[in-house]
Design a protein around this nucleic acid. Sequence first.
DNA 1: CTGTTAGCGCCTTCAA
DNA 2: TTGAAGGCGCTAACAG
Lengths: 350, 350
Amino acid sequence: VPTRGKVTLSEVAARAGVSPTTASYILNGRSAEMRISNGAQERVRQAVVDLAYRPNRSARTLRGSKTKTIGLISDHVASGRFASQMLTGASAAARKTDHLLVIGETEGDLLLETQLIEELSDRDVDGIIYATLVARRIVLPESLETQNVVLLNCFDPDRPVPSVLPDDLGGGRTAARKLLDGGAAEVVGVVGHDPDVTALAGPRRLEGITAELGAAGESVAALVRCDWDVHAAHEAVGTWLATGPTPTGLICLNDRIAMGTYQALADHGLQVPDDVAVVSFDGSDLATWLRPPVTSVALPLAELGAAAVRLLTGEEPVGDQPLQVPMQVRRGASVVVPQTMAARSGGDGV
Amino acid sequence: VPTRGKVTLSEVAARAGVSPTTASYILNGRSAEMRISNGAQERVRQAVVDLAYRPNRSARTLRGSKTKTIGLISDHVASGRFASQMLTGASAAARKTDHLLVIGETEGDLLLETQLIEELSDRDVDGIIYATLVARRIVLPESLETQNVVLLNCFDPDRPVPSVLPDDLGGGRTAARKLLDGGAAEVVGVVGHDPDVTALAGPRRLEGITAELGAAGESVAALVRCDWDVHAAHEAVGTWLATGPTPTGLICLNDRIAMGTYQALADHGLQVPDDVAVVSFDGSDLATWLRPPVTSVALPLAELGAAAVRLLTGEEPVGDQPLQVPMQVRRGASVVVPQTMAARSGGDGV
DNA sequence: CTGTTAGCGCCTTCAA
DNA sequence: TTGAAGGCGCTAACAG
């Protein structure tokens, strides 16, 4: 067995008793087109195996310039499961078309961002996925304008760049629907507020919630503003409850908010779901850890990543609007399910 | 401004009025060695800027064969913040030496693993980091034997491969020390148990705990076996408490277990930290979300990833033992701090 | 001090 | 049906 990565196409050809040209044709699936003899084909393929031949990618790239590599650049590769599940989805989808992912994390540093984009482009990646941790509007970096690019979890309203987003509006409707179905939509509070005007998730979820409640003749009774984390929610909801309202249902804009909300409800002696029904967003593991587990409209993280890759590789056609990936319900036990519903349950979400 | 990625070194040389060779020397920092005239240097550098020249990596690789690229292959790139924080650390460290990361996720599929390793090696990566989600013993894949490789969060006892691990033993001692300092080591329970014999974290933490308690004349009073997740811990601890013990301190082998433990303690009307002190491991955000926040011995995730890169690039010398990265305490409020301690506090960990 | 030259491994006209 | 030849962009002998 020869040393890896040292065998050239010529050697394979020699061993098979043909010219490099012929071998090349055969290995690139053009034997039919070129009418190569069966004998030659077999001998070449055998030689490939015998010699453990692997084509030299650099040489190919130098000549051709496809690399079977996709660049993924994001502000935060880390930060919890979020970006990483998108990564997983992207990585798996990439592999299906024989691609690998090169990643770069900018940490919000604009200079670094530019540098990383250059680095990726130096490596002749076949395309670049530009991802943000938080769904939001962006302005496409100039250095990406000449690239084959897909926006992941963000979009640029001023430029016709393909992009993928979770369907937060639909998700909002779904969340509200859960409360309606659970008969808990009489006094609905929405917990959470995004101070960043470019953020998309909060406003669009709220829009969906409002629409769905409105269609049923209900409305959002209160908006409890707080950052999207446990402590802020705990405090804000606690303060709010102290002022006397008695909500029948709460929609938390993410699972961390739900956790804080649970804490505040417990402080006030309120039971979930009997006193108050709760629905949240994210579908993270945290949702299942709460007692009772909170019903959560899940971010389709892996699917978002996968869709971005498919858009980039052309497996999936790009429309002129952002691709909206539906959000599925991860059912918990934080909403009472009426009998009629329970009877035909089991359909939605995981 | 010329089109990106199209300018060749010859063009730069031409514009500067020198030969490609000279230009090459200058751009590779060998002008001193080759005694290139200052004039030539300046003109070349100017031409580079004017033309926005960027060297063609494929050509370089074809000739030389360094790629300034590091492969990172792991069983699960996703799964929460864990792997992703290691990724962040690795990515940042890589960038310091001008490297980029190519990732591959095997999802535990051995065939896929082999394929990905081949893919990486086809791309002439300068080295491969082989990472596991759960710290454990492994057998180095055969296809990696001829590669420049570093093991991340795992090690192969039978092969002298550089590897990086968290110092779970030291972490165990630290956890126990917290309880001792808090005067809560009279009846200590350890919650969690890893059924996988190749796993490292559980046994080594326990070992550290036992050693530290032993040195102080105390010991582990009970081992509450359960999987490393919230529900399992809730149930196991609940069951155990029902049998009547009254622990003074509990050490949970990770933060999810701590959450479940908190739930069980609450069920039994026990207060943290007054009735029972709790210490856990991981240092995840979850630790800060609990009420009171649990004091947690943190996994140095980013540092693990960074260290692996440094080992691979030779920035850090490799020893013959796995590199053990210390675990720092993330202090919560789940252990009562005695006055004398409080007075000189503020020192350890964030 | 600088230019000429050859070749890394592959693909692809062009000719046979 | 197959082979010979050139060039992708860069670097490093080897001359000047």
